[in-house]
């Protein structure tokens, strides 16, 4: 069974190589005449007056945290979904309870306004 995963590993390595190769080729084939204006960060014609790594909206963090919760839940659902045939009614009720708790949390964050972007 494990040997079935070997082609995947080889594919990932080849994928990385196929990403590197055109960039190397581009360096070799393209011209290289840098000057300070060309290399300055793009900001609509005027000089950048502060670092671009600035503070940003906290909601992006919030989305990331909510994503982790829901993505973990999907990870829990995957094995359950595959064997639901065998575990039957008990499995369905168990997952309904689990999803129910999660939905309560979802309603809470919705009411709290964590999903608002205006």
């Amino acid at each position: 069974m494990v040997e079935n995963y070997l082609p995947i590993l080889v594919f990932i390595v080849l994928g990385i190589l196929f990403g590197i190769a055109p960039i190397l080729a581009g360096y070799m084939m393209g011209p290289s005449k840098p000057d300070s204006v060309k290399l300055s960060p793009y900001e609509c014609g005027f000089e950048a007056f502060e670092d671009a790594r600035m503070k940003f909206d906290v909601r992006f963090y919030l989305v990331a945290i909510l994503f982790i919760i829901f993505d973990l839940e999907i990870a829990f659902l995957f094995p359950w979904a595959v064997v639901l045939d065998e575990i039957g009614m008990f499995g369905l009720v168990a997952m309904a309870v689990f999803l129910g708790i999660l939905v309560i949390g979802f309603i809470y964050e919705w009411k709290k306004g964590a999903l608002e972007w205006e």
């Binding site: 960060p41 793009y42 900001e43 670092d51 671009a52 909206d57 992006f60 989305v63 990331a64 993505d71």
Partner: peptide, 19 residues
């Protein structure tokens, strides 16, 4: 990239993709 546009675009894009 250290450019404001790139930074904003990356944030937006990442939040959208994970959502």
């Amino acid at each position: 990239s250290n450019s404001k546009y790139a930074f904003l675009g990356a944030l937006r894009s990442a939040a959208q993709i994970v959502s």
